[in-house]
Nucleic acid binder design. Structure first.
Length: 538
DNA sequence: GGTTTGACCAATCTTAAAGC
DNA sequence: GCTTTAAGATTGGTCAAACC
């Protein structure tokens, strides 16, 4: 400890409640550790104007702001915690037995004898006042002191509740918190809060509409998480999650349109000029109106498993659509002119060829309608699937958009045959046709593939053959993207009042960045060896 | 000081609709 | 039939504030 010792107290900061001119030359990891009573600090100030002699352990990962003046943005990297959450910590996160003494400790020390670096994050919609933040490291150190003095084990909560204690800003080039000043009393905090209203407005003009929307959603979520009102936080959080999911479905639909050339990517296009780039008079008897930024391959996956034991995969269907092939081809009303460009594969597991579902679903492994089924040994199936989807050794290194109907389930099935789709860098985005249809229909539940095809006017038979289902799923995706383009979803959505419609994902949104799901916590692969789970490269 | 009330949180259960 | 997912409801424990 001694070897890492360093002085931490700067007398210049001690005698004023607020120091808004320039932060101490010492990093925050040093200055923020002024966790001794003010009287002691003041005593030192009176004795000498030179740096003090107290020491603290080095914290290599501590928050280390540069010299900051009022209004300057924080550097990239540090995490923040809302000051409101810090003040409410004893009531929200401390158990009954310790709450009283922790509450007393906070009351006596939080705003009387500590110096905090306060930052502010503005609400892009100006619905709320500036969000007051402190660096997470300062609160952690405060808890350490509390634990030392109270002989307790106070900590930042784990899991979802803990996320609010480690907020990051600046993603997608969005604004970062601005420095307000240092405060060591309630009145100082109040003064800085007032002064936060005089901060210059953040420049958001460079943000794409999708980035702006995501930033706004993030700030809204933080504010709603901090609410302690009549409405249950849990209900509020659950609602936010639902809304987010719906918005994500809308963005997914728009990305599909973008990949197909039915929607213009609007990265780095100002929102004013964006409106001119929306299709207004396009008809399905014309080729796709926009040239996609880069061509991609859609690979649709459908997996059939034995109905008595879902771990036993019996068929895998793959359907591939190369957007390069779509150029200059009119899709037709439902995309039927593009359907013939889909390349379909149907693989049956040789050792399980005798298994045919009939109890709960009517399987038809012999009825692949879009080519010739291939028998593949269970030990080779991951390699065969990998060859179609592609990997880092493939000749074609273009991005792959993986598609499925309730795709999460199919991706999990793939892991059970030894192919880990989350370990393939080529796969950059996921499309779920069930979620897409739910988005279009604005319905509460997902619908079956057969029903969706019927609704979209796509004729089909022999469902529950993996090869057929993969083809129908891809057709449904195409038909929905075209239908949505022709219906002019953008114009319709503009009629909704912003903020009142859970389904509206931003009328000037192009779908944003590609998005992959997180891999499942556990995958059922007991019958597969560890080696089998490694993707085989071709 | 004791009781009541409302809020919050976590865990659990139920329901519905898909998948096989 | 079983599994998964999501949403909503219920339950029990805890606590603060209000009330008597």
């Amino acid at each position: 400890m001694a070897s890492n010792a360093r002085p931490y107290w700067n007398s210049e900061d001690s005698d004023d409640d607020i120091n808004i001119s320039m932060i101490s030359k010492a990093p925050a990891s040093i200055q923020s550790l002024s966790f001794f009573p003010v009287s002691a600090q003041q005593e030192r100030t009176r004795i000498s104007s030179t740096a003090p002699l107290c020491t603290l352990p080095s914290t290599s990962d501590a928050f280390k702001p540069l010299r900051l003046e009022f209004g300057e943005v924080s550097e990239e990297g540090p995490t923040f915690v809302p000051f409101k959450l810090v003040r409410g910590y004893p009531g929200r996160y401390v158990g009954r037995s310790n709450q009283k003494k922790v509450f007393e400790f906070f009351k006596e020390t939080l705003l009387k004898n500590r110096v905090w670096d306060l930052f502010a994050q503005s609400d892009p919609t100006a619905k709320h006042g500036p969000l007051l933040l402190i660096p997470t490291i300062q609160f952690e150190q405060f808890l350490n002191i509390a634990n030392h003095q109270l002989d307790g084990e106070l900590a930042i909560p784990q899991g979802r509740a803990g996320e609010l204690f480690s907020l990051t800003f600046g993603e997608w080039d969005t604004p970062r918190p601005r420095f307000l000043g240092r405060a060591n009393s309630a009145s100082a905090v109040d003064s800085l809060r007032e002064r936060a209203h005089t901060l210059p407005a953040d420049d958001l003009s460079h943000l794409t509409p999708s980035c702006y929307q995501m930033y706004q959603d993030k700030i809204d979520e933080i504010y709603s998480s901090l609410k302690i009102g009549k409405k249950s936080n849990k209900l509020e959080a659950a609602k936010n999650k639902r809304v987010q999911k719906k918005k994500d479905s809308g963005r997914m639909l728009k990305r599909v349109q973008r990949y197909l050339g039915l929607r213009q990517a609007i990265s780095h296009v100002s929102s004013n000029s964006y409106r001119g780039l929306v299709t207004t008079s396009w008809g399905s008897q014309k080729p796709a109106p926009f040239k996609p930024k880069e061509s991609v391959r859609f690979v649709c996956v459908d997996v059939e498993a034995y109905e008595e034991d879902a771990r036993v995969v019996t068929e895998i269907g793959l359907a591939v659509l190369d957007t390069e092939d779509l150029i200059d081809i009119c899709p037709g009303e439902r995309g039927e002119n593009w359907f013939s460009l889909v390349q379909a594969y149907h693989f049956r597991i040789e050792e399980r060829r005798y298994i045919v579902n009939s109890k709960f679903v009517q399987g038809c492994p012999e009825a692949f309608d879009f080519g010739k089924s291939q028998m593949v040994s269970i030990k080779d199936i991951n390699k065969v699937v990998g060859k179609v989807i592609g990997d880092k050794n493939s000749e074609d290194q273009r991005p792959v958009i993986i598609v499925g109907h309730d795709i999460r389930q199919d991706l999990k099935y793939l892991t059970s045959i030894g192919y880990n789709p989350w370990g393939v860098p080529l796969i950059v985005d996921e499309v779920d046709t069930q979620a897409m249809f739910q988005r279009i229909e604005r319905g509460p539940n997902g619908r079956s593939l057969a029903l969706i095809c019927a609704e979209l006017g796509i004729p089909g038979c022999n469902y529950h053959n993996a090869g057929n289902d993969a083809v129908y799923t891809l057709r449904a995706m195409i038909a929905m993207a075209i239908k949505r383009t022709i219906d002019g979803s953008d114009r319709k959505e503009e009629s909704f009042t912003p903020g009142t419609d859970e389904w509206t994902d931003g009328d000037m949104d192009d779908g944003g960045c590609s998005k992959r799901s997180a891999p499942p916590a556990e995958t059922y692969c007991a019958h597969q060896s560890k080696d089998e789970l490694q993707n085989v490269q071709w």
